[in-house]
Design a binder for these strands. Structure first.
Lengths: 222, 222
DNA sequence: ACCAAAACGTCGGCCAGCCGACGGACAGTC
DNA sequence: GACTGTCCGTCGGCTGGCCGACGTTTTGGT
């Protein structure tokens, strides 16, 4: 199994602190984006490389009256607009930016940046492939189960009666991440709550008594 | 508009002949694969970088009794198994291979390889995003129209009564590229033939009288 | 020329899930 | 407290296209 788009963070443990502080961000400019700002569209001419300092970006594709979220980027996340997507600040966000020509020069002079960049692109690729697998092979319930399961694995807090899973996405957000509709997600979650797989804690968190119950729902129809 | 997976070729015009001959392939080993050989699976432990010399590779994902082709690789194509896919020789194939650790060393010592690799990964990413758009936003007829249209753009030969489009894929191959079934493709092609959009020339080529007829079928429902 | 295997054409049943619609529950804000 | 915007729950109708099935055509091997 490999990672889901929206849950993976860059692997900074492999980045020497000196690099992170000194080399890597040379040449980047710091920018503040207001909430709702559209940083990039598929049509925009020049690519760039960015790293989020604080806030939250949404990376998405848009089709005929429908949107598909590829990923949400938060503090520390790196992204490159090599690929034709929309990038939008969902809250006020500050980030470091550089455009591709400048970054290419940087790559040429400082070879230590290359492995970082390869990892970033590799991760983007894995995310994309994961989404393709979801869309092509899995039904909506399996996608949601996988999503929640991974969220619990990564962000869940062990509690007395299960895992407390923080959920700072609206149902519309989740639907767009999984390539389905708000209604389908809403119905599923409520059904699962009736079945005892989930307990709604607050508005923005779930309690999952047993991860196994989720895991069994990850496969098509056993 | 951006490229479809299965139709793009690497841009060697940007590669100085000296590089192509001398630097790039240093450290690669030449291998011959028999027809049907499975070079790589999602489970296989170590990644590699490869370039096809002759023959044909199929890159695909497998799900529950279903397969999805990401791409077919032919002479000159470069690929990296950074991402968990199956790679299989559909005919007897010869290729240059190197594994990632060795390639990483190469990248570190010879910075001129970096841009080539970035382009390759960028292309893979664009292909993946294109597929996601297909699966998420477009219905099957639109996917097929787009596929044929791009094939005609790239490989089509101008003829007296239209474009002659070579088609060295079986219908099953096309279906798997577009994330649908053999039956749907078969029905569509025959229907379009009845409507005069297509003429079957030989078994492995089509004659398209007007590309516009295809183009109008690329959008959902106008 | 022959036969097996692969590829193609077509039909109908069936269902996941999209879509529109509408009402209720929560914030904030004035 | 009323006013407004965003989010959530639920229902039913409708449909794209998957699936199984079966017959026909083409290919390739010996």
């Amino acid at each position: 199994m490999h990672a889901h788009p929206h849950l993976s963070r860059p692997d900074f443990s492999t980045l020497a602190p000196a690099e992170a502080a000194a080399g890597l961000l040379d040449g980047f400019t710091l920018r503040e984006l207001p909430k709702g700002y559209l940083l990039s569209t598929p049509a925009s001419p020049h690519n760039q490389v960015l790293m989020v300092r604080s806030g939250r970006l949404r990376v998405y594709l848009a089709g005929d009256n429908r949107e598909l979220n590829l990923s949400f980027l938060e503090a520390g996340d790196i992204y490159t607009t090599h690929t034709p997507t929309y990038v939008e600040a969902v809250v006020s966000t500050s980030l470091w930016l550089i455009d591709t020509p400048a970054f290419a020069r940087k790559l040429a002079t400082d070879p230590s940046v290359t492995p970082v960049m390869m990892r970033v692109m590799g991760r983007l690729l894995s995310n994309a492939v994961g989404l393709i697998e979801d869309l092509a092979f899995r039904e909506v319930p399996a996608r949601l189960a996988r999503f929640l399961w991974q969220l619990a694995e990564r962000r869940g807090l062990r509690q007395e009666h299960g895992w407390l899973v923080p959920l700072d996405f609206s149902m519309q957000d989740i639907a767009s991440l999984l390539g389905t509709t708000r209604q389908s997600i809403s119905s599923l979650i409520n059904q699962w709550e009736r079945e005892g797989v989930l307990l709604r804690q607050s508005r923005r968190s779930l309690l999952v008594p047993s991860l196994d119950a989720l895991k069994t729902r990850c496969s098509p129809l056993p």
